[in-house]
Design a protein around this nucleic acid. Structure first.
Lengths: 236, 236
DNA sequence: CCAAAAGTGTTGGTCGTACACCCATGC
DNA sequence: GCATGGGTGTACGACCAACACTTTTGG
């Protein structure tokens, strides 16, 4: 990635908003930029779009670079085109939302985990904050480029879509074997709110079971202290 | 607009999905391409994004070129980035939805009306069709580039958003003085379905009147054969 | 008087919310 | 037994669809 771009031409990049749910919290993957501009600043993973690839392909390649071996759910978020959003020159960014189940992640990502970190996203009353496990706290203005704005757009989008799409299921480690409790944890993390388990159960079963997309399996979850949970399977 | 673009660089364009409601029908503005590629084909208005302008600015300029003197409501729709979507070279397109009230349109647009035309959009059971006042009929495959797909994305989007956003009001000639009947006509055109006026009335008033965004004025609509309608005003 | 558009009222069903209560397991 | 999480039942209110009915205009 050059520090100075061709002055007379327009460049296209993709940026990734990689989300997961861990320990009941919504987490975002960001890393420190190793080189100018904004060297040392926290930023979303980004990459230029090559001549022979679509933005979606570029986003998939970038994801593979950052978190090798993980296939995430990808969805185009928004395209940011402000003239001065990149000090190197004219760069527009097609931002993607990437959802990855935490349980599938851990495998061979030790290297990248050192330069990239997961921050908890908290948004209350229009104010967005990111916090580290180490207690480090960021506000949107601390991030490189317009990445604070991109994150804000993303969290708003996913909160808006979770009730009328199946995007919540994309956070599940195994969509073919999960308990409603796990799913509720995902919803609570995204909405940053407690839900009534009884009503949550009915809402999900109502929406998905009668159409046949969601089915109860004959298995139950052995682990845990309470009553074993019935396990379900969803067709995505 | 050159017939051949720089081979080694990536270009960014905007395309406009200009919508209006006329005579109870949802209409889309498309025009015949005057030059290659796809010379003579029907296409959405498009334009390259300049070095010193955002995509939104480019979209606004394009709108001013096509329909001078009209300020439309603009909303980014989706970004299309397939590698082979333009035979001239690598062009990605940021598509915008533009909503314009028919009543505000007629003024000084005689020139452009000759090369551009309004087609009625009909989408039934996943099948999209465009029909002219002259009875000409188009299917998505008849359009230049991937414009058929862009139109399909747009009509799906606006139908999905109409019940939970205020985008329907953007079709009104005067958002500060309109009858619920006019608004219902807009909704029916977009959804391509008849609505019960009694229920429509309650739904709109429930959603907007109690928050103070929508207010009944002391004026009534004199024209028409039936009972005069109360006129309302919405804050957009 | 009749047609047409505006506007009110009513009824039955569905769905979200709040909450009481029972079930199965670990400790 | 008790805490914990899974799961059922119920009751109330809001909302939506369907439809009967009234009001005010033009012809």
């Amino acid at each position: 990635m050059p520090a100075q771009l061709q002055a007379d031409s327009l460049h296209v990049a993709v940026d990734l908003l990689i989300l997961t749910v861990r320990g009941g919290q919504l987490k975002l993957f960001i890393s420190r930029r190793p080189s100018p501009p904004y060297a040392g600043c926290w930023a979303l993973p980004g990459r230029f779009v090559g001549m022979d690839e679509s933005a979606e392909t570029a986003a998939n390649k970038l994801l593979e670079e950052m978190l090798p071996g993980n296939r995430a759910f990808l969805e185009q978020l928004y395209t940011f085109t402000d003239v001065n959003r990149d000090p190197r020159g004219r760069v527009i960014s097609v931002a993607y939302l990437a959802v990855i189940p935490w349980g599938r992640l851990q495998a061979g990502n030790k290297q990248k985990q050192e330069i990239g970190h997961w921050f908890r996203i908290i948004k209350k009353e229009r104010e967005l904050r990111l916090t580290n496990d180490s207690g480090m706290e960021l506000i949107p203005g601390d991030l490189a480029f317009d990445h604070g704005r991109i994150i804000d757009t993303g969290i708003t989008r996913i909160r808006g879509k979770i009730d009328y799409t199946d995007i919540g299921f994309r956070f599940l480690e195994n969509a073919h074997l999960f308990s409603l409790g796990e799913l509720q944890t995902v919803y609570e993390a995204i909405l940053d709110d407690k839900l009534d388990s009884s009503n949550f159960r009915r809402a999900i079963l109502n929406r998905y079971e009668k159409t046949g997309r969601l089915n109860q399996t004959d298995q139950t979850e052995k682990q845990g202290r309470g009553r074993p949970a019935a396990l379900y399977s969803i067709k995505l």
